[in-house]
Amino acid sequence: MIPNLDNLPVYDTAGVNERIARFCSRSIKSNSKLEGLKLALSMVDLTTLEGKDTTGKVQQICYKAMHPHDTLKNIPKVAAVCVYPAQVAIAIKALKGSGIQVASVATAFPSGQSSLEVKLLDTKFAVDQGANEIDMVISRGQFLAGNYQYVFDEIVAVKKVCGQAHLKVILETGELDTLDNVRKASELAIYAGADFIKTSTGKIQPAATMQVTYVMLDAIKDYYIKTGKMIGMKPAGGISTSKIALQYLVMLNEVLGEKWMNKNYFRFGASSLVNDILMQLVKAETGNYQSGNYFSKD
């Protein structure tokens, strides 16, 4: 049933910004940095979501997902590869046996401006192609018009079609205007059955910010306090450097703590982040600052 949205916690932006500033002022050095970088790498949903994606492109990033940088020992693989439904089968094949998940966007991604019927078919197609994870978008237009029931029902319906596949619900926070709206949308998604809540499609600016992520983590925290159920979190878009990724991890560490500090409950939706992490790891090993020339693009 749709949750009561009237008594949700509200957010004071200045206060949230101050808290974020505290996370960002944490200085992560030495082993804790290496540990953090490797953790971040293991949490990446390596993503390509372009109209021009082809079999070749998808195969390339799948290989990158499995072999981020073979000269570095003891580094993890990424968590998943995230593609459009039409590329799911290719990714499944390319990643076979690697343990890396295949996530597919769905539901008329990125705008969500289609009928429920089309969205369900879109989802079903992705699932049928073998996607382990579905990244759906909510209907922001309906949300902003106040039709929360519509948004809720849609998520419930998609969840049903997902079957065994994990459902990540994209709020597209860049279109929700206020932190209070982000909380409201998080609440709808969680109560409608989301396994993860996700900030952005990556197609709208701003994409993920620490502020909206903070609010979403707070929603996850409150839900856990109430029900004991753990929901995952995926900030996506704009997280391009190790430094930013570590700041997100500090926030995760200090807000939700150890149970969430793994790829089952936290993901980064990113692409260029991977190479930046790798450059940092190589720098830590060799002591030299690195050049992009030594790190494969896809």
Partner: peptide, 12 residues
């Protein structure tokens, strides 16, 4: 309940 596990190394 939400205990942080990632201990930051010294950053003097």
């Amino acid at each position: 309940m939400f205990k942080a596990s990632w201990a930051y190394d010294e950053a003097p």
